[in-house]
Amino acid sequence: MNQPSVIHGPHLRAGRTTRYIMLHVSISLIPALLGAVYFFGTRALYLTILSVAACVLTEYLWQRLTRTQTTAGDFSAVVTGMLLAFNMPVTVPGWIIPITAVFSILAVKLLFGGIGSNFVNPALMGRLLAMVLWPGLVMQYTPPRTLNADAVSSATVLGAVKTGNEPGYSLLQMFLGETPGALGETSKLLLLAGFAYMCYMGIVNAEAALTYIAAVLLLTFVFGPAGLFTGDVLFNLCGGSLILGACYMVTDYVFVSRKGRLLHAAAAGVLTAGIRIFSVYPEGVCFGILTANCLAGALSLVQKRHVYGTRKA
């Protein structure tokens, strides 16, 4: 009986739904996934499928059990699952994947209210959990099989340089992805292809990604290892997971106002660069972005908003 007697406009809706956005983000990750299979073998594919399945199933079961609106079909859990797998080395034991997937989806996303209400990136939190619980298992990288090297564990390029060794790989190898590293982070070329696809579809905040990259590169250049202005820009850009973080993590929707987003990206960049320069961790992308996520609320306060009609004459 309480039905409204009249339906007001708008009667037109944009075609771009949550599902559409997340579906195309998933599609944009496929080149990097293919790259991972090429460099690290079919196990990369199995791990990714396992991760995606665990994420989607967790979301579906939880929403069925709690009888809440089900959003398991909106592909956001697929994106989380893919990114989670992309952050793991190919040697990771299979059982770690579902544990981190359940943690990411249940503890980080669903318990905070589900899609849109998580205040940090679920995939990054999942990686953080795995790093803390099983550092020996998830931070052990093997060289790509295309190099015909022995499958012994080795440091990432950034890690090698951090400990004072030679990187051991050329810049081109880094760009193409022929380096030790996590599944989806190594091939900058394929990540950028996915990013270009998202830009073409208009579903990504390219400004935030560029701000993040610019902040990291600027600071690591200025405060270089051998004194001021000695940082290696291209090495910092291609050596680690900076591009993965910029394209898929910083741009994730978080609680931050529209103009606060650039500030959020810049803060993530400063934090990442700080970790790279001053801490024992070579990478910093994960911590930097997660910390910036936590600052998002404060950063939103910075923005001045103009409401029509409130301009002082």
């Binding site: 959003t71 849109g116 929707y253």
Partner: peptide
Amino acid sequence: EQPCIRCL
């Protein structure tokens, strides 16, 4: 209606 994803 789906949950808000804060796309702004």
